[in-house]
Design a protein around this nucleic acid. Structure first.
Ligand SMILES: [Mn+2]
Ligand SMILES: [Mn+2]
Ligand SMILES: [Mn+2]
Ligand SMILES: [Mn+2]
Lengths: 221, 221
DNA sequence: TAATTTTTTTAGCTTAGCTTAAATATTTTA
DNA sequence: TAAAATATTTAAGCTAAGCTAAAAAAATTA
């Protein structure tokens, strides 16, 4: 059981998340942007992680996680999302505050703690942002969702997932009183800029931009 | 609000704990022993913490915490003991396993988290080892206890506190089935080596060495 | 009190994880 | 396809936090 530093764990986590979005191959500059480090620092660390056989690194080409690297990345994500669940559900934190604290808690090293937390929380499958929580074996429940930006007129949906964990976006959702599991009916979609008019829980009318809609995922009902 | 590294926080915490036991003045070698670092490393760090006005450092003489240093030390101890309480009470960890995990959790930076945990746990005054948990203001409940080694023959006591958080000592207590809040009646004390014979909860007879008794604190009933 | 032992500090080195600036490889554009 | 732009790596250097070995101060012992 190798133990990595918080820095190394963060690299693996972001490589996993960037790789998921793309083909699996992650570029130096994309990581540098995510981590807010210089590209030179990223190159150094990628070589180090490659030496440790946590990823395969091809100069000028990009990296992808090895089996071991993937396993660790998922474990970090599992811890992050379990802690977010605890902070929101048990401690009543608002969802815009949980991410930054979970960024610290995700690096606590104790498998027994992780598994006991999982049990304590009732083995949740999704975190407070609707993101899937990997189980002990690394299995992930893929929710059957579509992007709200692609939702159809007149149809009804449930808000399942937000794709942006930043405090600024989540505070905006708080302000317009939109929450996970709210019922959404698309009333109108402006042809010019794709601004959407929606009815929330059959009573509240709101209007959101296409930029906002792109960050939300819904399930049709 | 200055933020310290985990290393700096550990120094302040141990200086506080060593200073409590002694006059308040802490020596380089005592810290080196506690932290398992070389004395040279300790000297370096003490100078650095003195520069930050967290302690007063006099060459060859020793250190003592400033008001700011004391405040931070108590906050770290507060977090450590709140987390230990959570791990034992809520997650059902045995008391020999909680300390090492709390050593990591005590460095999570979020006053809001600390205070919400305190509330979630019902504002506990003592941790699972019987150590006092500083409140938000840094106030500490001093328990009215005596060392079990000094306990009187035939008298009855309640086990309130253990003074050694090491897994090896706590596992020993598990083995002899001795727990916090157990009732202890002193049956005999051997003159030769001060070995004690005791009746636990009016039914179980055990014999413990003076070394063990020195690590336990009791309240008379 | 002088010698010896112990404690503490100083000096010089190492590693992890970052930086900027310069060099080089790749990709895009004209 | 050659020039320009962009992406990536290399080189050199910094800070935090550790180390060992040597020097210096303080404490103990003879
Ligand atoms: Mn998050
Ligand atoms: Mn999340
Ligand atoms: Mn402890
Ligand atoms: Mn404790």
């Amino acid at each position: 059981m190798i133990t990595l530093t918080a820095t190394e764990e963060n690299y693996l986590k972001y490589i996993y998340q960037l790789g998921e979005a793309q083909s699996g191959l992650v570029k130096t500059n994309d990581l540098a942007y995510k981590l807010e480090h210089s590209a030179a620092s990223v190159t150094d660390m990628l070589k180090k992680l490659a030496d440790k056989k946590l990823l395969t690194y091809t100069k000028y080409y990009g990296v992808s996680l090895t089996k071991t690297g993937l396993h660790i990345a998922k474990k970090v994500l599992r811890k992050h999302r379990l802690w977010e669940t605890f902070l929101a559900k048990n401690l009543k934190f608002t969802w815009d505050k949980i991410h930054d604290i979970a960024e610290q808690l995700e690096h606590i090293q104790s498998d027994e703690l992780t598994d006991k937390m999982d049990e304590y929380l009732g083995f949740p499958k999704f975190d407070p942002h609707g993101d899937p929580i990997p189980d002990k074996q690394g299995n992930i429940s893929i929710p059957n969702v579509i992007c709200l930006a692609d939702a159809k007129l007149k149809k009804q949906y449930i808000l399942q997932n937000v794709n942006d964990d930043s405090a600024i976006f989540l505070k905006y959702l708080n302000k317009i009183k939109l929450q996970l599991n709210d019922k959404i009916k698309i009333i109108d979609k402006e042809e010019f800029d794709e601004t959407m008019e929606m009815l929330i829980n059959d009573k509240m009318r709101i209007t959101i931009s296409n930029d906002a809609a792109k960050n939300m995922y819904v399930k049709s009902i």
